Amino acid sequence: MFASLFILLYAAHLAADYPLQTDHQAAHKADRCVAGWRANLAHAGTHAAASALALAVAVTVLGHTIKALPALLALAWITGTHAFIDRRWPVARWMRFARQEQWAQRGGAAHVDQTAHVLVLLVAVLALTR
């Protein structure tokens, strides 16, 4: 169950982060204004919907048993942390702390961002399958 849930949630993450994310969301989700928060929350909502669909596939197609409360908590965790990470300052702060400023200037922030999201999914799947 662990592997299939992780693969489904990771596929949902990739879909929400790339083909389902609008140009406007990508450009403005870290802006420090109402429009930035709106773009950020709309993008996080896409993650919630895609992840919910992934969990529904796990239950209906693969026959996994996932209780409602743990599923809702996992969706809240995925959605909330995604919105937080995508504000961009947490990744920038981590890269400064880890002395990765030069790598950040060469595009490394995108890799750190995606790694953070994958670790979030790992925690969610561990919680769902414990």
Rank of each mutant, 00 (worst) to 15 (best):
L8H: 11
L8K: 07
L9P: 03
L9V: 07
Y10I: 15
A11K: 06
A12C: 09
A12T: 01
A12R: 03
H13V: 02
H13T: 04
L14M: 15
L14N: 13
A15C: 14
A16H: 07
A16E: 07
D17N: 04
D17L: 00
D17I: 00
D17Q: 01
Y18A: 12
Y18K: 13
P19E: 03
P19K: 07
P19H: 06
L20K: 02
T22Y: 06
T22S: 15
D23Y: 12
H24Q: 11
H24F: 15
A26S: 12
K29D: 02
A30S: 11
A30W: 05
D31S: 10
D31L: 03
C33E: 12
C33Y: 05
V34T: 13
V34K: 12
A35Q: 15
A35C: 09
G36A: 00
G36D: 02
W37P: 03
W37G: 14
R38Y: 13
R38G: 03
A39W: 05
A39Q: 07
A39S: 09
A39F: 00
L41S: 06
A42S: 14
A42I: 15
A42P: 08
H43M: 00
A44S: 04
A44Q: 02
A44T: 05
G45K: 11
G45T: 10
H47R: 11
A48H: 15
A48M: 13
A49H: 05
A49S: 11
A50Q: 07
S51W: 07
S51M: 11
L53I: 14
A54G: 08
L55M: 12
A56H: 11
V57R: 08
V57D: 02
A58W: 01
A58S: 10
V59P: 09
T60D: 14
L62P: 10
L62V: 00
G63V: 06
H64V: 06
H64D: 12
T65W: 02
I66Q: 04
I66A: 08
I66V: 15
A68F: 12
A68C: 10
A68I: 14
L69H: 11
P70A: 04
A71T: 04
L72Q: 11
L73H: 04
L73A: 13
A76F: 10
W77K: 07
W77I: 00
I78V: 09
I78W: 04
T79N: 05
T79A: 04
G80E: 05
T81W: 05
H82R: 06
F84D: 03
F84Y: 12
D86W: 06
R87H: 06
R87S: 09
R87M: 01
R88S: 05
W89Y: 03
W89R: 00
W89Q: 05
P90T: 07
A92Y: 02
A92N: 11
M95Q: 10
M95L: 04
M95V: 08
M95K: 02
